[in-house]
C-alpha cells in the first residue's frame, strides 16, 4: 500500500512539473509576457495564522496561499490569487501588490448570483490603497456581503505582504 502511495506521488509530481502552471494562462499574466513570473506559494503555519486572526479578527480557510512574484523591468510586485466565501458561494480575486499598495484588483470568478457582484468601477477603488485606507472605501448598494468579502481578501493580501513571507 505504501509503495503504491509513493508511486502515485512520484507520478503526480512528474505530471505537475511536466505541465505548465495553468494559472499563468490567465489574461492578466498573458498581458505581462515580458515580465519574469515566478510561482511563490506560501504555506501558513499556525503562528502566522494566530497573528493574523488576532490582528484582523478573521480566519484563514486555507493554509496554502497562491502567490506569484512578478519582475517587470526591475519593478517587483506580488500577485495573490485569493478566494473567499461571500454568502454561500465563493469569489476569487487577483490582487497585485507593490510597495505595500494594491496595484491591480480583478475578479477572476464570482459564483454568487451576478446581481450581487459589485460593479467594476467599485473594485477599481482599491487600486493604490494601502492597508489603513481600505476601510474608507464607499459601501455598495445590494452587494454588502461582496464588499465585506473583497475587503477581507484585500486585507489578507496586504497583511501577507507586510509580513514579508
Amino acid at each position: 500500500m505504501e509503495l503504491l502511495t509513493y508511486i502515485l506521488l512520484i507520478f503526480f509530481s512528474l505530471q505537475v512539473k511536466a505541465s505548465e502552471d495553468p494559472i499563468l494562462r490567465l489574461e492578466f499574466f498573458q498581458k505581462h509576457e515580458d515580465c519574469i513570473i515566478e510561482r511563490k506559494y506560501i504555506y501558513l503555519d499556525r503562528e502566522i495564522k494566530t497573528i493574523y486572526e488576532r490582528e484582523i479578527n478573521q480566519a484563514f480557510e486555507s493554509s496554502i496561499i497562491k502567490r506569484y512574484q512578478m519582475n517587470c523591468l526591475g519593478q517587483i510586485s506580488k500577485v495573490y490569487i485569493l478566494s473567499d466565501r461571500v454568502r454561500s458561494h465563493y469569489q476569487t480575486l487577483l490582487i497585485q501588490i507593490s510597495k505595500e499598495r494594491i496595484q491591480v484588483l480583478e475578479v477572476l470568478k464570482f459564483s454568487e448570483p451576478q446581481k450581487y457582484q459589485a460593479p467594476k468601477s467599485w473594485y477599481h477603488k482599491f487600486v493604490t490603497r494601502s492597508d489603513s485606507e481600505i476601510f474608507n472605501i464607499d459601501a455598495v448598494t445590494g452587494a454588502t456581503l461582496t464588499r465585506y468579502s473583497t475587503m477581507r481578501m484585500a486585507k489578507k493580501a496586504l497583511f501577507l505582504e507586510s509580513k514579508n513571507l
Binding site: I23, S62, I81, S83, S88, Y90, K109
Partner: peptide, 23 residues
C-alpha cells in the same frame, strides 16, 4: 455541503455544486 462539501478548483475552493439545490 457547506462545511465539508467544498470542491478544490484551479483558482481555489468552490462551493459544492449541489449546495444551491439543497438550499
Amino acid at each position: 455541503l457547506r462545511e465539508w462539501g467544498n470542491v478544490e478548483t484551479l483558482l481555489g475552493p468552490e462551493a459544492n455544486p449541489f449546495l444551491t439545490h439543497a438550499q
